[in-house]
């Protein structure tokens, strides 16, 4: 019993080790001083308060999208729309951050709420199409990513753009709109508290409420859920609303926490990274914290490495690809699990 139970944990650990090993191999091939570079990669992100701060800052958006995708995957919905929603809600929050005048308490609250609600509504569209007409949620969500990016970029270029700035960025946000920093010496902002609260709420929702229960059962076996009397179409729309809300909140928080102008001229990629975070977390809200921190850690490591050595930071996308390919590979190490099962069956017999 013992070993099979921990199989998934062991497997995840094996995937991470293989990914790191590949990172070391790449560094060894590319770098003039491989050992020193590996040292930088592993050590620098946790060497100073500032760097640890960077890791946590980076983890905040990953936690938001990872959480959103986890819930969707939990309901067995293959929706990768968090990417576009994250971006577009960032635009929405920016508009309010620029144009509203409120006190520094209400301003971010209103901007983030608006971004989240817009995210929820946008996300509901593929959900409704899926629940009502069984339109493939994956294709619609992928198309929506591009549509939302186009519309968002249009808003940036035509309505928000600050002609006086040198780059393609928006007007400055009102200072009242920006999230305050919570640790001196870092840029960690109140978004961290928000996302941790969301994760705990999502955990309670998923495991401790009847709606979360419906969501989990619909994801495990939709026929069973229907047979038990659950309205699975409603569940599907609900999970899309919630996931869109969280992804939208993530985009809004990221914009108000880390920048003073909106400046994404391309999709920032956090939505797809969210799929990776969710997979590493096995779609568990609380585990999202750890897997987002891990991903942020290796990313900051790669950034430091690029700054302090001769290996470019883009190495990290190779590592991420390896992790995705292996972590979702059902058959990876399966032979080992089967052998353990057989052994246990024999031991019990």
């Amino acid at each position: 019993m013992f070993k099979v139970k921990y199989f998934e944990v062991i497997r995840t650990a094996a995937v991470i080790l293989i990914a790191l090993a590949i990172a070391f191999i790449i560094i060894s091939l590319v770098s003039d001083q491989p050992l020193k570079t590996i040292g930088i990669f592993l050590w620098e992100p946790i060497s100073t308060k500032g760097h640890i701060g960077n890791v946590i800052e980076m983890a905040i958006p990953l936690m938001f999208t990872g959480l959103a995708v986890s819930l969707l995957f939990r309901a067995n919905m293959f929706n990768l729309g968090a990417e576009g929603i994250f971006y577009f809600s960032g635009v929405v929050a920016s508009v309010l951050a620029i144009h509203l005048s409120l006190n520094s308490w209400f301003h971010p609250v209103v901007a983030i709420a608006a971004g989240s609600i817009v995210g929820a509504l946008l996300s509901a569209i593929p959900g409704i199409l899926k629940a009502k007409w069984n339109a493939n949620e994956l294709v619609t969500s992928l198309m929506f990513n591009n549509i939302l990016f186009g519309v968002g970029l249009y808003l940036l270029n035509y309505h928000l753009r600050d002609a006086k700035a040198f780059a393609n960025v928006s007007y400055k946000f009102q200072e009242t709109a920006q999230l305050s920093k919570i640790f001196t010496g870092t840029r960690i902002h109140t978004g961290l508290i928000i996302v941790l609260v969301m994760i705990v709420l999502a955990h309670l929702f998923l495991y401790r409420t009847k709606w979360g229960y419906e969501l989990r059962m619909t994801g495990v076996n939709r026929d069973f859920a229907r047979y038990s009397g659950m309205k699975t179409a409603k569940v599907i729309i609900l999970v899309h609303l919630i996931a869109g809300f969280i992804a939208g909140m993530g985009g809004s928080v990221e914009v108000l926490g880390m920048y003073n102008r909106f400046q994404w001229a391309s999709l920032p990629g956090y939505g797809l990274d969210g799929a990776l975070v969710a997979m590493l977390a096995k779609n568990n809200p609380l585990s999202v914290i750890g897997s987002a921190l891990f991903l942020a850690y290796i990313r900051i490591g790669a950034d430091m490495m690029a700054r302090l050595s001769d290996v470019p930071s883009e190495m990290i996308s190779i590592i991420q690809a390896v992790i995705i390919l292996l972590i979702s590979a059902e058959q990876f190490l399966k032979f080992w699990k089967n052998r353990m099962l057989l052994k246990e069956a024999k031991a019990n017999a």
């Binding site: 059962m217 495990v220 076996n221 069973f224 859920a225 047979y227 009397g229």
Partner: peptide, 19 residues
Amino acid sequence: RQGAAGDASISDNLISTRY
């Protein structure tokens, strides 16, 4: 197919009609 959700716990399976 209908009677049980295989990956869910026994407890989850027991309450599906009365949660």
